[in-house]
């Protein structure tokens, strides 16, 4: 059965940026990287793209990627197209206020309804900037579909999605009727690298660009429920006591003595 899949993707600052290069922006509302560090697609969203493409490879269908954001870097946000996705929809309104999770889910829900035809929505389990893991769950609520989180394997058969999800002590298999929403975790496996052919194909595709006005949302639906008052780097007070020794073996013995003195072992 061919599957019509929607993947949500977010452009974020590169989480691999060393802590020393990160700073709080002038407004004190978010972190920023130096200008020469390009943004990336949220890692878990790339896992979601991979999950979608595996389904498409196995049984056909279409993968549409939707992203809500500001200041998109086209070379970055087009990556899912070069990985093999069929369509990219960008919802960008640089004049709009910064959305909280509730407003973001409202925008995504409206966009998905505008797309119309779909069986499955796949989202990354959380975004590496604000780490909320709220938008996918909220989106499932707004779309009124079943939701399974933190998947490591997704299969679609006979109008049902079967999801193996990561549990603290193993795995759980869940089944839900389509349409449904599933969030994807890194346990699914590495996302594929774009092929040269994929990159060429993507370079010829233009993303569909929608404005908020195209989605017919009103101001109260987009009003923030949660406001960010301040982002800050907490002060560290810990001072490490380094354990010395003439060689590494002696350091090992000295560590044991120190921990015994401190009654920790």
């Amino acid at each position: 059965m061919p599957v019509n899949i929607i993947v949500t993707a977010k452009q974020v600052i590169d989480p691999e940026t060393p802590a020393s290069a990160l700073k709080v922006d002038a407004q004190g509302k978010r972190m920023e990287t130096p200008p020469n560090v390009p943004p990336v697609i949220n890692g878990f969203d790339e896992n979601a793209v991979e999950a979608a493409l595996r389904l498409k490879d196995a049984q056909g269908g279409k993968v549409t990627v939707i992203s809500v954001g500001k200041s998109f870097v086209l070379d970055v946000i087009k990556k899912p197209l070069s990985m093999g996705c069929d369509e990219l929809i960008l919802i960008q309104d640089d004049n709009a206020p910064t959305f909280d999770a509730y407003a973001t889910a409202q925008v995504l829900a409206a966009a998905i309804k505008k797309v119309g035809q779909w069986d499955l929505v796949l989202c990354g389990r959380q975004a590496s900037d604000f780490d909320q893991a709220q938008v996918p769950l909220g989106l499932a609520e707004l779309l009124k579909v079943p939701c399974v989180t933190i998947a490591q394997k997704v299969e679609v058969k006979n109008g049902q999605v079967t999801v193996q999800r990561v549990a603290p002590d193993g795995a759980e298999v869940m089944e839900a009727p389509l349409p449904a929403l599933v969030t994807i975790s890194n346990e699914l496996g590495q996302p594929r690298y774009p092929t040269l052919r994929g990159i060429m194909a993507a370079s010829r595709k233009q993303p569909t660009q929608w404005k908020l006005a195209d989605l017919g949302l009103n101001a109260s639906e987009l009003a923030p429920r949660v406001e960010v008052a301040q982002v800050f780097i907490p002060a560290k007070q810990k001072v490490v006591e380094m354990i010395g020794g003439d060689n590494d073996e002696e350091k090992g013995w000295n560590l044991a003595r120190k921990l015994r003195e401190a009654k920790l072992i």
Binding site: A19, K236, K238, V240, E241, M242, I243, N247, D248, E249, E250, K251, G252, W253, L255, A256, R257, K258, L259, R260, I265
Partner: peptide, 29 residues
Amino acid sequence: ANIFKEARYGVVGDWSKVVPAFLQAVKEM
């Protein structure tokens, strides 16, 4: 390494030498 900024005690060394010696000491204690 960033972990030392969070640590109470730190050992800079090759784990394959530090850890077996540490284990030996723990067992003897």
